[in-house]
Design a protein around this nucleic acid. Structure first.
Lengths: 314, 314
DNA sequence: CTGTTAGCGCCTTCAT
DNA sequence: ATGAAGGCGCTAACAG
């Protein structure tokens, strides 16, 4: 049996007698034979590999996204090359350049690169953005807007009048988006808003803002994400402030909010779906199946758990 | 000028007259020529890629490990192909087979495969195991033994006499290891031990064991990992049991124990280091730099935070 | 030092 | 429906 037949059994089974195909596949199974993608890539120009670059693998927002991306890519017979940019634009650019020759396309999550650099890289290979809104580039966004609207309505109902927002990484699309959404919603409800900055946007950064929050007189805090929210919770507790009796706290992401104690009221973002969709769009692009200005916006919603309550009586 | 000369100008410039090298590089520059890594890989068999397969990317134990592995690989100019086996041996085997032709080696974390299958795969490419102890195969282990010894001594000192262990995935090396260590240590301290099973080894699984734990009369629970521990905490709270006043809880992994509230007393495993070391060993193997029966055991230690306290008075 | 000759493993025309 | 032949771009022998 010639190599051509084997090759066809894998790539164009329709050109072969079904029983032949089956025979080849069976034999391959027992032999543990798998077509070599590298060799195939050389001849077709398609490597069957995509890259996924995130700012920080260990940030709990990303693992579900990464997993979904990997699973979805695998389903379409693609592998994923993972890169961690350490929140560093230079490192991110270096990784992209390094990956580009050996992948068919890239997914860039929460890219720290500027629009021009992004466009430049996108000229060499198809690129799909996650949580970065650059017109003209395919992008999927976990939109926190609805969730924050609901959170603020929820807090308004509980009688809160003064909110604090603890912001995340300056320049991040997701932080901008939250700031804008919150500003709009609190106006609708005639609430006061004071904003702070978790520096860095981590547990410790969140914790460090607590003193300032307390001084501001806010009775409810909206955090950039669940990690920051937990930092705030810890800081509050250290200051003897009870949650939710004395202060309400709302997180964002819903990545581990449910699996910690106390259960955090938070905004659920569809982060896994974002990974999945980004991969689907990218593979459509790679296969030349898609066109147009793709802008996938995934909505969010508030999940009330145990860290929000009525405003304390002054 | 022949292709060989050009090739050498990039890979073995020391074999060429310096001016020739310079001439080639200059021409390449103006032509925008870059050596094709894929083609090179096909001919050399060195792709500059390694695979990392984990049972569940979103299990908080793995992201730090994955990140460390990626960073270390990158430092040595390797890329990492990530795979999620979904805790499924068949899926794991499929991924390995699929990745094998296009990588120079693999790191298998917490593999669910049996020894024979592992050995079989290792014959095709260098393989390094994490948290799987197969004699003859290079392996790095996050050894929880010391940590559990310390935890049990700590609990003994607090007056506890009856322990509960909430076990993890049956068959997992890490669960065996914990069971053995705990069994030995509790004997040393003359304590009673009752074991339970978190089914599955998740937050919900941990929560579901609480009723049985309460019925057993244990006053302190050791959990398979931090996720299960948090499930136990939540279940305890739902039953009106206070921690640590009425019940002490110890987790394991120290992956997000510090960034939640209340801070969990837990056993700190060096999981990031495990990823880093595994990659180093693998790349040594790939480069033919290493030999012998590598068995890297990384010790652990107890970190006392806020979920352990004196035994309640009967 | 540099050119020549074979492949790496696969896919894709051609033939048959 | 299958086999045969050439080439993807590069590197590793082996000459010279």
């Amino acid at each position: 049996m010639s190599r051509s037949t084997v090759s066809r059994a894998f790539t164009r089974p329709d050109l072969l007698k079904p029983e032949t195909v089956e025979k080849v596949l069976a034999k391959a199974q027992t032999l543990g034979y798998v077509p070599n993608k590298v060799a195939r890539a050389l001849s077709t120009g398609q490597n069957g590999v995509i890259a996924l670059i995130v700012p920080d693998i260990a940030n709990p927002f990303f693992p579900p996204l990464i997993r979904a991306a990997q699973v979805d890519a695998d389903r379409q017979d693609f592998c994923v090359l993972l890169g961690d940019s350490a929140e560093n634009p230079a490192q991110e650019s270096r990784l992209i350049t390094r990956f580009t020759p050996q992948v068919d396309g890239l997914v860039l999550a929460a890219s720290r690169l500027d629009d021009a650099a992004l466009a430049e890289h996108a000229r060499r290979r198809p690129v799909v953005l996650i949580n970065r809104d650059v017109p003209g580039m395919p992008r999927v966004l976990t939109d926190s807007h609805t969730g924050f609207m609901q959170a603020i309505a929820h807090l308004a109902e509980l009688g809160h009048e003064h909110l604090a927002y603890v912001g995340g990484p300056p320049g991040a699309w997701s932080d901008h988006q939250r700031r804008r959404g919150i500003a709009a919603a609190r106006t609708d409800h005639g609430m006061t808003l004071t904003t702070f900055q978790a520096e860095p946007a981590t547990y410790d950064g969140g914790k460090a803002t607590v003193e300032a929050i307390l001084a501001s007189g806010a009775t409810a805090v909206l955090a950039y994400d669940d990690v920051v929210a937990h930092g705030v919770l810890a800081g509050l507790t250290e200051h003897g402030v009870r949650v939710p009796e004395d202060m309400s706290v709302v997180g964002c992401d819903d990545v581990f909010a449910a699996t910690t104690y106390p259960p955090l009221t938070t905004i659920s973002l569809r982060c896994a779906e974002a990974g999945e969709i980004a991969v689907s769009v990218l593979l459509d692009l790679v296969a030349g199946r898609s066109v147009g200005d793709v802008r996938h916006s995934l909505d969010s919603h508030l999940i009330v758990r145990a860290t929000t309550g009525p405003v304390p009586r002054a």
